[in-house]
Design a binder for these strands. Structure first.
Lengths: 195, 195
DNA sequence: ATATTATATTGACCATAGTCATATTTTGAC
DNA sequence: GTCAAAATATGACTATGGTCAATATAATAT
């Protein structure tokens, strides 16, 4: 049964071509018709793979977010939880900012989908779970001493993360290094949660 | 010259009718045609007052946000800066959550407009300035001792605020009081910024 | 091989946000 | 009051995201 495989390939092709076009001309300026023309498929086919035009952006975001979960295992040797979070989210930051102009739209879509749509398991909640597990682990092995509940802590870290991501490019401050900016914000949260 | 006044009234009428309809049927389900029919005006007229359908939501958000700036003077007697922020943002919280289902969309629009559109002075930046002035004042009169830069502090508070607002209703936790949840989050930030 | 069923593709079609040239109204000058 | 200019209202029109019944293709059974 090759069908499943071919389907996946086509989805990937549509995705890549769309992203390519978005980067060239901007998201709004690219029509679905344009995307399908480039792919050599009919318009209806597009919507068999992505239920809305926005889903392309969401797909980009969630696929990057999913990589984080996998990365989590690779960095098992990092003892310091703050360090670990910094490295993990730093990676994600790097991957998202690679898509420069698109990044904000992608982040917006992630938030929209996570906060507006009633998915039981959305990508931000998964991220939350990953952070929670790090925090929980750190609480157990004593590298983090905190009187706050784990979900509250994770929540604070995530809000910091997304806010950094979104506000970064409109900061008129001298701070141009987004990772450094995130670290500054995280410092505050970290001090706030520690005993 | 009554024109300006009548214009303002019509804008307000369109706004109120639209909000009313949104609450009854949901944002997506209400068409611009429907709004103008209720108002007894032509479709084109709508777009003389709001450049996009979304602008109705944005208008709701920014008008609430503007009230905060005015409130700022009324609470001048509150000495404790954390308390002041809690009261101010608590008020905003109350006013936004009054619009229940609409609230999330409104918050989303505020964020979109602030982070995606290149307005020099968007509503979040104004909020940021207000918070900054509170922080700065507290630093001066010694009610807040912090080694962090004021913009970073304000930024942290705001990110906390919006995240609370958005995540509140999807929290499956037992925490159902949004103000209490915000206070928990703010506690962390506050401890983080204090010396 | 052939028939049957399941799955995927298609593009005409629809709904609606947003535009714009034209018509109407308001304003202020004389 | 009359007129010209400026501001505002209008609704036919356009562009595009998204739907869906009809069609084609692939998988499976006989």
């Amino acid at each position: 049964m090759l069908r499943a495989e071919r389907k996946k390939e086509l989805k990937e092709q549509i995705f890549l071509q769309a992203i390519q076009l978005f980067k060239e001309k901007g998201y709004e300026a690219v029509t679905v018709q344009e995307i399908v023309s480039v792919c050599g498929i009919a318009k209806g086919t597009f919507f068999n793979y992505f239920s809305r035009k926005d889903d392309i952006l969401l797909y980009l975001g969630t696929s990057q977010l999913e990589k984080l979960t996998k990365q989590l295992n690779h960095y098992h040797y990092i003892e310091n939880p703050k360090e670990l979070i910094l490295v993990l989210l730093g990676d994600l930051l790097k991957r998202l900012t690679e898509h420069s102009e698109l990044m904000k739209l992608v982040v917006m879509e992630i938030m929209k989908s996570s906060y507006l749509v009633e998915n039981e398991y959305n990508s931000i909640q998964k991220l939350q779970k990953s952070i929670e597990s790090i925090v929980e682990q750190a609480k157990i092995n004593g590298t983090l001493q905190s009187e706050h509940e784990t979900p509250i802590i994770a929540s604070s870290i995530i809000s910091t993360y997304f806010h950094t991501l979104l506000s970064w490019s409109l900061q008129h401050s001298e701070e141009k290094d987004i990772e450094a900016l995130f670290e500054k914000h995280l410092d505050i949260v970290w001090k706030g949660i520690s005993k």
